[in-house]
Computed example of a mutant assay.
Amino acid sequence: MLKDQFSLAHLTALACPPPALTYIAARAGFDFVSIRPICMGLRDEPDYDLAANRQMLRQTKAALWETGLQVLDIELARIVDGMNTKQYEPAFEVGAELGARHVLCSVWTDDAVFANERFIELCELARMYQLTIELEFVPVASVATLKQAVSMLHIAAQENAGLMIDAHHFHRSKENVSDLKGIPAEWFHMFHLCDAVKEIPRTKEKMIKIMREERLYIGEGGIPIKEILQEIPKVPYSLEIPHLQRSERLGFEEYVKRCLQSAKEYISLNLDDVNIY
């Protein structure tokens, strides 16, 4: 059976710049880091534009070299109305320079034709840097369901395109685990592992708050994680578990250690005897 591998997703400790995130991840026992060099422009969100901040880029390289960690993915290449695919090229170049494997992508335009065209362009651009584009469906975005994401991937038909499932989004979109059957195994390159309360919020605002500030340790909530993971190939698990109060109380280093501990314990208890290929 393949070894479980874990990445520390940047949203779990977004206040930590990439070099600090890398050192924290290494001390906690992670195999990878997943960093966010593409700023989304949200209020109070730090900007880690490594293409513009060459000093931080050098520091990130040094941290990766010293710790031996690798970069699993960079984020987030959003497809929005009026966007130009080339705007992401500096971040793709940085990702390749750091040895990243994947780029996360989500869709925030209701113009399906435009979205499909830009997605194909992103894949073509990423191919120049030996990167894949991982399409993530998000319940508050335009591509909000598994069905929509699968359809988009079939239309694009790009060899370096993948499907990135986030456990939180899967549950909030009210997906059925059985719908994972038949999805091409080669589409899976990584998985966002987290937990959350079982009850799905009734408002978009509350859903976003939980998504960004109140996710739970693995096994603590009500998401059918075991059932989901039984239906997909074993891939690296990126732990995206932001919890504002816990990380402030414990400090990021202790908090991410507990995130990783919960994931390892859950998988050991629930999945070690399952033949995940």
Rank of each mutant, 00 (worst) to 15 (best):
R246K: 12
V94T: 04
S178K: 11
M164V: 14
Y266C: 03
L131A: 02
A52G: 13
R127F: 05
S106I: 03
K226Y: 04
A26C: 13
L135T: 10
L239M: 05
N160Q: 08
E121S: 10
G221N: 00
Q5I: 08
F191W: 06
F114W: 09
M1F: 07
P37M: 00
P18C: 03
V140Y: 07
E240K: 07
L69A: 05
E186I: 11
S7Q: 02
V138L: 11
P90K: 11
S247Y: 06
M190P: 01
E186C: 10
A63L: 13
M83Q: 08
A63E: 04
Y217T: 07
Y277C: 08
E248M: 11
D73N: 15
H10C: 03
W187M: 09
I133W: 01
Y277A: 11
R172T: 05
N116L: 13
Q59L: 10
N270F: 08
Q230M: 15
Q261R: 13
V138Y: 13
I79E: 03
M1D: 07
S151Q: 14
R215E: 02
P46L: 06
A9E: 00
K61Y: 04
W65C: 09
T145V: 09
S34G: 15
Q5T: 15
L57Q: 04
L271D: 01
Q148R: 02
A156N: 07
R127Y: 00
K206E: 11
Y88I: 07
P236A: 00
H192V: 09
E89W: 11
L216F: 01
L193D: 00
G82N: 12
G99V: 10
E89C: 06
L193G: 02
D31Q: 08
F30M: 03
D44H: 11
L250W: 12
I133H: 01
G29Q: 13
I218T: 13
E254S: 10
A77C: 15
A96E: 14
N270A: 07
R58G: 06
K209M: 05
R212F: 09
Q158A: 12
K226L: 07
V256E: 02
E75Y: 02
I79D: 03
Q245Y: 10
R118P: 02
L193C: 08
F188N: 05
R101W: 01
Q87M: 11
A196D: 10
T109S: 06
C39S: 12
E205P: 02
E220N: 12
I267N: 02
H154P: 03
T132V: 00
S178D: 13
A9P: 01
H189P: 00
A196F: 03
F114D: 03
S262E: 04
G221V: 02
D179V: 04
S173C: 11
K86M: 07
C39K: 12
